[in-house]
Design a binder for these strands. Structure first.
Lengths: 221, 221
DNA sequence: CAACTTTAAGAACGATCGGTCGTTCAGATA
DNA sequence: TATCTGAACGACCGATCGTTCTTAAAGTTG
């Protein structure tokens, strides 16, 4: 066999395995966004993914390994649909606002049936211990650090005043976005778009306009 | 027997029942703040409360009835430790800030081992249906309505400008307080008081000072 | 082709889930 | 005193939990 040529030779077995692995993970993240990472059940997952409960163990040693992989999968989804699109905007306030908007969009579009995977996981694991908790904590920590970096960039560009407390502003933006999921879902009135999402959008927009050295960079509220 | 006199005649049986009912409910709320209302298990609850699993059914028909009672119990606790103390402050901005401060205090004091019962319940039940979900939704709705009323009072007193969006401000205050629990618990550094609580406090204080017609009503940040 | 590995299913495991059963015992009532 | 009631228990139920074992087919490799 010629080594080094067409390294991507088809492997029917492995390809099939990879495909069902992907299906299971996507379903796991969707189910976990509803029932939580712990409330996620292998029986339900197997049924939703169309595989047997035992066939699952061909891919993961145990439930915990699946949970860790689900976190990684959800993280990639978050980066793809929220972080990366925001990076298309010019650095500074506009990018910061775009990040927040893409996040809210992620919720209103109903990408995940439970709203937000990470939010559910954070609340579920904030008072436990073990590898899953550490992974969830790292995801939150990374997200906040990223938010803070965007804030710092806006300061460096002169769009926010020198001396702005970057961690504080990052916390506020995250808090105002995070809470909207639960409020929107618990307080629906009829079929109209829940008010919580609009309030989350306005809160951050007004906050940034209030701080901006040049508010005209941002749309009017 | 003299009818109408000392109607509260002691019944040792019922008194005993009432006492263990109280013990079980307190434990249920504590456990649910950690594991969630659904993750709450009758076995764990029985062990924590020092009763048998079956003896539990002398007081509640099923788990759902207990969950509903636990919500009512947690609501009373919330009113006692957060709402009522805040009402001791003069109406307006100071009362509004006091409410927020008492809430954060509730968290930092570690009243519940899981931080916040309602927060956990909201995230857990925002995408389900049934009586428990409705009770959780009503609790959130009442809380937001109360916050909004305090804001409206501040407006009526002239401490906030006419035309203030009361629902919007109520949402922001709640969001900034709510998120602190999870962040604090997931991002602890060593033994020092988590920074999330301080940020939640400062966020609301600065927000209110920024809006106030007379900022000197509030402490400096 | 033979030998081996990977994917997947079926059956079954012990543990635990929420819940029922019959019973016991203390205390109230007649 | 005799009877009744509410609290609490231990034993046990079917269902489901996460997990293991065995088996079989499909695909890869020597």
């Amino acid at each position: 066999m010629l080594v080094g040529m067409t390294a991507t030779k088809e492997d029917g077995r492995r390809a099939r395995g990879q495909r069902s692995r992907e299906v299971i993970l996507a379903q796991a993240v969707a189910l976990a966004s509803v029932h939580g990472l712990d409330g996620l059940t292998l029986g339900r997952l197997a049924e939703a993914a169309g595989v047997s409960k035992s066939g699952f163990f061909a891919h993961w040693r145990d439930k915990e390994e699946l949970q860790l992989d689900a976190i990684a999968w959800a993280h990639r989804q978050w980066v793809d649909l929220i972080v990366r699109p925001a990076l298309l905007e010019p650095a500074g306030l506009r990018r910061l606002l775009a990040l927040h908007e893409h996040r809210i969009r992620f919720y209103t579009d109903g990408i995940l049936p439970g709203g937000c995977f990470f939010f559910a996981a954070q609340v579920e694991y904030d008072d436990r211990s073990g590898p899953v908790r550490e992974a969830v904590a790292r995801a939150l920590s990374d997200w906040l650090a990223f938010l803070e970096r965007l804030v710092a960039e806006a300061v460096a560009l002169g769009e926010l005043p020198e001396g702005t407390d970057t961690a504080q502003l990052a916390y506020e933006i995250d808090a105002l976005g995070e809470t909207s999921v639960t409020h929107a879902r618990l307080l629906r009135h009829g079929d109209d778009e829940p008010r919580a999402y609009a309030m989350a959008r306005r809160a951050v927009l007004h906050r940034l306009r209030g701080l901006a050295t040049d508010p005209s960079l941002l749309p009017e509220g």
